[in-house]
Amino acid sequence: MTLVLETRALEKRFGGIVAANQVSLRLEKGARHALIGPNGAGKTTVINLLTGVLRPSSGEILLDGKEITNVEPHDRVRLGMARTFQINQLFADLTPIETLGLAISERLGTGTHWWRTVGSRAGVVDEIAELLERFRLVDVMQERTAILPYGKQRLLEIALAFACRPRVLLLDEPAAGVPDAERQEILATIASLPTDVTVLLIEHDMDIVFSFADRISVLVNGEMLVEGTVDEVSHDPRVRAVYLGEAFDG
């Protein structure tokens, strides 16, 4: 299989603290890869490095075999990489219709068009409608995002990443804080992603990890402890030691 996303000896230091130490990840096309680890292990740092919010102190990031270590965050999106945020990062003053219309326009490269009205291009409206339905946002589609209930905001957070139609999708605890009803919806939607989309999932909830991922990387204190199949990782004694008393007991 072809490697889609790869990191080589990625390192990030904040002053004297090493947040990510020699992190090497290899994601093949269509992979369902989970990145787990205890709180403060550096999982979000890794996502921030991958998406370009942070620049690594050393090491390389490759997308489709091409180095993107110093590519701007918005250009990485154009190259097909999208993410969700652990804490919602939304546009408070826009409605869901506008939010999704914005992301779709940007993907189509019409975001700089100042003479058109939003959604005047064929297909944009249908795609907005499709996303609103899939993420159960139709009933609130004209409300300002700021006043939406948390569950709806969370759905919009995920929908916004989907609107970018990524080839590589980075999900940072997508189901965090979501009420049960919508939780299943989010997980089902993620599970129904086309098989050629590569997914890196950061998650705390082991049920989600086991049901979704085919490979798992365990990050501890900024270092990659283990990488392997679900079976290998769940039986690894070091991982059990780290997670003692947590989900692996069961």
């Binding site: 918005h74 945020f85 992301a103 940007e106 916004l160």
Partner: peptide
Amino acid sequence: GNPLRSAAVGI
């Protein structure tokens, strides 16, 4: 509203 997310949708 949110420059961080704006960059994350490709702006």
